[in-house]
Design a protein around this nucleic acid. Sequence first.
DNA 1: CTGAAAGCGCTAACAA
DNA 2: TTGTTAGCGCTTTCAG
Lengths: 341, 341
Amino acid sequence: MKKITLKDIAAHFLVSVSTASKAINDSHEISVALKEKIQAYAKDKNYKPSRLALNLRNKSNKTIGVIVPNILNYFFVQVLYGIEKVANDKGYNIISCISDESFEKESKTLEFLDSGTVDGLIVSLSEETQEKKRVEALLEIVDNQIPLVLFDRVSDLVHCDKVVVDDFEAGHTATSYFLDTGCKNIAFVSPISKSSVGTLRFEGYQKALSEKNIPLNYKLVVNFGKDDDLDVLMSILLDGAPVDAILGLDEITAVKVLKMVIARGYSVPDDISIIGFTNGQLSEYVTPALTTVSQHGKYIGESAAKQLIERIENANEGQFDFKTKVVKTSLVVRDSTRKLP
Amino acid sequence: MKKITLKDIAAHFLVSVSTASKAINDSHEISVALKEKIQAYAKDKNYKPSRLALNLRNKSNKTIGVIVPNILNYFFVQVLYGIEKVANDKGYNIISCISDESFEKESKTLEFLDSGTVDGLIVSLSEETQEKKRVEALLEIVDNQIPLVLFDRVSDLVHCDKVVVDDFEAGHTATSYFLDTGCKNIAFVSPISKSSVGTLRFEGYQKALSEKNIPLNYKLVVNFGKDDDLDVLMSILLDGAPVDAILGLDEITAVKVLKMVIARGYSVPDDISIIGFTNGQLSEYVTPALTTVSQHGKYIGESAAKQLIERIENANEGQFDFKTKVVKTSLVVRDSTRKLP
DNA sequence: CTGAAAGCGCTAACAA
DNA sequence: TTGTTAGCGCTTTCAG
């Protein structure tokens, strides 16, 4: 049976559309008798007001758009989960899009969403976008007064609410932990060197080293991209200099590094300690279990969603006091690092 | 700057709205001079037709809804990824919802989506829904002629396109593999005993046993729920009967079982072989690497999306020749099972 | 208590 | 070549 509209109902009872509308919305202006008849009929015919029409009328549709760079990365899944939870609570739906780390796909998606489809947007920038510093599409969004929350991979050029992790501190903490457990030759392996997040962590890494007067050794810094062969790079790294610790900038990288190191006969953590990022199942179940920096993805998602919905629902007030929320990371110590003395 | 509408543009040039509309859509009925002026202005002011209005007019919005039971399960993430890929290709957006294995949340979501928000729906049932066999909301969807594709967790009661895995065969294949490698006491550990998928795999398991004239031993069958302590159940299992193989019905279960078994001092695969489901990163990187049944999640997602979009775009033809696509699983052999003789 | 009319933003058939 | 009108489905004044 095809969808039934108010008009159909009105016709069936030979009343006007507006009467039918009021009856269904239980308006006091309508006689009880009529209301009951109409409501019963509506229920029977399974009438549902068309969202499409309501959306147009209300210029809103209780939907928020989310763009993440990569859904196969557990961190972003956690964030998504958090967003969904609070959005759902508050009666919002989610349009989720994946930028695949591509500037172009991100821009297209943004352009698409910038046309009334969503009430607000939660975005984490693609690496390419951060590298190129091309945030026009975001600026457009802001200019069009669509509430926007950036998380994790953010940009200073965009004026909006943000939820980030203290990546500088995270890099610093992890590196210091290596140092405190007696490691000296700490390698830094990053698949996201061009993102804000990667840069900040690197700065934290540098800072921790310099605090102990350890010079930065570029032989220990491995930045790689999608097309690089990590295995080869690791060989070069391990052959090129003594290494007793490795900081891997995302979960899968840390795990792969762990496996490669073990495959080459090193013992973890005795010969080499390893710390990863994103406290996911992989880190927990791999052997030896990985010490990781937890960014609390779910919490980030929840915060971003709360912040956004707040903005949406108080659209007029205080437009320009944007907040940046910094979520503290925590180091989850497991078996891939030596014990503190 | 606030959104600009056709009306604004029309007013600015003192023309009618329809003229403005045609000019912007580059209609041949409009003089080139005027078109150029208007288009330039529109571009400058960053005019974008309102999706909301277009949606109402076209009764369509190039959006498909997806409901999965659990987004923290890698299998569903893979499916989502596949769906997104083809949807994006064909210009569709995705509204993604999570049922959290809850019948109520699923019903609410379905009800919400059943009001013009989406052009079609891709759904995998929550376990609770399958257990209760309460598919009214789905029937409603079908009745309202909203194209629907069910995947993985499906229901016979709903008449629509489906994409499933041959779970019976998968259960059979995995069990047979154990048998062929010399295992005799094969345990079956399932967190989804009430879902279609779990049931079918169990039947495959039984079949494989009976083919070798091995009686089914209920001591070896462990069905557990969210609130059960798997650790306790595993102790009971291992203490209650000799066990030399365990089939875990999802990835995380298999991994947990693997860890527990090892923690109890068994050697894998020598004492106990283990096979899991969902060929994800976890299975690949855990030690020993898990032999798993791959359901090809991404491919399932792609198939479902293709099927759905096909339906959406050929809405009228052949309404009732629903197809069920069966995706073959494959056994990815790694180190948690003994070698074939 | 009920209905007519306007409007959300856009398009398209039909006039002029 | 441009404008008028109607309509997508619904709500909401404002009259009756």
